[in-house]
Design a protein around this nucleic acid. Structure first.
Lengths: 256, 256
DNA sequence: CTGTGCAAGTGTGTATACAATCATGCCTAG
DNA sequence: CTAGGCATGATTGTATACACACTTGCACAG
């Protein structure tokens, strides 16, 4: 399982555990009427299920989603299926082309780097706002989660670290006081999480994260906006660093 | 319901001109199959029309959009209307509550400030990326548009300035080389444009913008990422405070 | 006079039917 | 043998019909 970092998703051994972690995370923002039957809001249910399938790589990039097939599969008519597909498309997870069906969006390396850059900026702004207005209790909560991350990193618990890390960033969103930013961050984070979780498996990645978090929290506590912003951006930007920058420049700009 | 139009004309005398400017801007990103009849993609057409109506304040915040009424109005069935409404809702322009209809989202002052903060960060990142990799031709283009802005500012042509200003920022998006960022920026810009354009009318706002643009372009040309980022953020951030005033003015005006 | 309950009406959510458009495969002609 | 066109099939987009849920108004009881 340690070698599941290779780009091919051949080893799906830990899928279940990830799924549980994701579920637990999603559960917090879910309405109470999420009974196993849940017949009423059929389209909303479909959105959740399909989203999970895409995010967990059950539906792979390029897979075609046929309205009729899905309708039969879920025992509903095409109408709610259709609605769900459009919604997922507007979230950026699907691509819909006229009379060509809906396909799971293929994310290119360039696009992924682009999204990470934006994510880094989101989190950077969050950190900046935290430095400006985070309450002592909130800062204490950040430290608690980071210590949790530390313990899980030392235990080499990738799944636990992944979840704790998400919770820590969630605290930062909340403490930023900017709900719009928090919501956009969550959306984008959802989209790149399927890739982000692979990073957890990089050697020394977890330990480095804990250290970087600590520095960020220090900057927030000091009220040092610039440092908090910069450190957080660099923290998130590590994957989309300058080396990848070259790749992006080559892929998106074929000018001479 | 649709007759609440006359009241608007008095206060927004230049609506037509704005509409033209917006149309011209939107036209650039529109597919060629946009014939005057355009019966085929009914839902897409509805999205455009309703979006324009919302963005141009023809449909005011809080207005209720009834599926059946809209279906009759556009001589289509409820299905495409429904699809259009859902799409607009996911863009954040509408709010849909169960059995409560779709209403034009009321933007509070706090939300608007939040959006401007994110916008500032988007544009700041754009400027940073430009400083890293903008080509000389692109920088020259920025300067050209800024000179155009300057001329229009001196001529007190608010509408022209608004459009030229948009084009200049568009160049920066393009030169950033980050298509995802550019797309997200456009979406958010669309959502706050209805308020942003009012700012153009504030005294000395146009002249100040031209100066700030010049400094930003200088930083980009120097390859000074930090300065470009900071200057652009401050440039957009300045608008946030003004925008808050505008919202309050609009809210009080729409209430009576 | 106020609060609760019931009923009717409106409006959304889903299902099914139909039309139109695009893709695919075969046939024919060069 | 290849290329192009036509026909057929499949799939999406739209229309209409129906069922259920919510809201709103009124009435009655406390």
């Amino acid at each position: 399982m340690a070698t599941s970092f290779s780009q091919t998703e051949a080893s799906t051994g830990g899928e279940g555990q990830y799924r549980q972690a994701l579920m637990a995370q999603a559960e917090t923002a879910t309405k109470p009427d999420m009974e196993p039957d849940a017949q009423k809001p059929s389209s909303a249910y479909l959105v959740r299920v399909l989203e999970d399938d895409i995010l967990n790589n059950v539906l792979k990039p390029g897979d075609r989603l046929d309205e009729q097939t899905l309708a039969r599969r879920f025992s509903v008519s095409r109408t709610p299926v259709r609605e769900a597909l459009r919604q997922l498309a507007s979230s950026g997870l699907l691509e819909i082309r006229r009379n060509h069906g809906a396909t799971v969006k293929r994310v290119t390396v360039a696009e992924l780097i682009e999204m990470f850059q934006v994510m880094a900026e989101f989190e950077g702004l969050s950190a900046r706002l935290c430095a400006r207005r985070a309450l002592p209790e909130e800062i204490a909560e950040m430290r608690r989660f980071n210590e949790e991350c530390d313990a899980l990193a030392k235990a080499a618990d990738h799944y636990g670290f992944y979840a704790a890390n998400n919770r820590m960033h969630e605290v930062i969103y909340a403490a930023s006081g900017n709900n719009f930013l928090a919501e956009e961050s969550r959306k984008l984070r959802n989209r790149i999480n399927v890739y982000r979780r692979h990073i957890t498996f990089q050697p020394r990645r977890m330990q480095n994260s804990v250290l970087e978090h600590a520095r960020i929290i220090d900057a927030i506590e000091d009220g040092n906006e610039e440092a908090a912003h910069r450190l957080m951006r660099e923290h998130v930007d590590l994957l989309a660093g300058s080396a990848a920058d070259v790749v992006q420049a080559l892929e998106t700009r074929n000018r001479k």
